[in-house]
Design a protein around this nucleic acid. Structure first.
Lengths: 197, 197
DNA sequence: GACTAATTTTGACAAGGTGTAAGAGATGAC
DNA sequence: GTCATCTCTTACACCTTGTCAAAATTAGTC
């Protein structure tokens, strides 16, 4: 899940690195303004050790978000995306995404608007967008959706509506089921799907 | 536009305050991390004068965002929202919004996720949501839209899709016309409107 | 088990940002 | 013209980021 571990790294360095990342996830989720020192303490490590692994606070942030993205993508891939109706696969994917995202709401909100190079932001969203694209394409080819709207636009719409549903549920304006239902209906409509049951 | 000016304020102080706010808008839009000192300099004022008007950097940020929100709401109200088909009014409202928002893209991105009490964030979004709500309700009552989806959900969806269209256009993945068209079609579909021409 | 190289720790430093304070100076209101 | 208000200057304490160098520790290797 963490990719090929970096070459020639001593076991203790590896330990420190993951310690720091895990601590950062929790600390930053509790307080996105947390200092490097606070993260280091939570990781049972010195501030200088953090700087030995990450050149700056910002780069640590990026690493944390990449870490969470990997986790999310993994959860999505476990959700059986190539089976059954495309709408259902789509909802499963969104469900998997919002489930892991829901564990670190503060961080995932920060993910959207970070004083970070938007290039990195895009790199992070690509793998998720690809998976979405695959499903939508499958639905279009199966005649489940029409193809009046462009693929890229539908990907963007799906992500946004997924966020909207999560937020409405978290804000208590909709129950969890209501949110899923509203999302379901809205997606079907935007996709030009035959009205379901 | 700026509401009833605070009681018993010397002209002097009023000038400084607006100077600071305007400078803050521009400086922060160029660099959201800009220091209070930099903002003060741009306003031709001392750092301490800034603190005389705003108790902390964060509160200054809030004031800036409130200021922009007022501006946006005013632009929306100038857009003739109670005339013609509700869809068109909706598009006019979104157009007005994205036009003023487009002038300070960085700030409006920050508006979404600020380390600020979400309570303030909500207070900021309410006036815009209300205007949206009015139009959608009008469309539903006129039979232009169906009422299968809840009002609050439709408001959230409209805002999100408006953002999506702006972003796709800004990222160059869609032209300005294509984005408007995609937004139009998508909203009509979600709203359960009779398929247009 | 001892050697070696990588890693962490300790202690210290410069630079820059936030927020506070007091008094002198300037400016608007009346 | 007087007075209260506002701004400027100067100064301070505190925190955070990022960097450096040397001592102490630990992991991998023979």
């Amino acid at each position: 899940m963490t990719g090929p571990q970096d070459r020639n790294r001593r076991a203790d360095a590896q330990r420190s690195r993951t310690s720091i990342l895990e601590a950062a996830v929790h600390v930053l989720n509790a307080d996105p303004e947390a200092s490097v020192g606070a993260i280091a303490t939570a990781a049972a490590v010195t501030r200088q050790t953090v700087y030995a692994h990450f050149p700056s606070r910002e780069r640590l942030l990026v690493a944390v978000l990449d870490h969470l993205t990997e986790e999310t993508v993994a959860a999505m891939d476990a959700a059986d995306l190539d089976t059954g109706p495309a709408v259902d696969a789509l909802l499963r994917l969104l469900e998997a995404g919002s489930r892991t995202a829901g564990r670190y709401p503060v961080l995932f909100q920060k993910l959207g608007s970070l004083p970070v190079h938007p290039h990195a932001d895009q790199r992070r969203h690509v793998p998720i967008g690809d998976r979405l694209k695959r499903i939508i394409q499958r639905g279009q080819q199966a005649g489940e959706f029409d193809d009046q709207l462009s693929l890229d636009w539908l990907v963007a719409v799906t992500i946004k509506l997924g966020h909207a549903a999560s937020e409405e549920a978290e804000a208590g304006r909709l129950s969890s089921v209501e949110a899923t239902e509203a999302l379901h209906v809205s997606l079907l409509r935007v996709f030009g799907a035959a009205a379901p049951r």
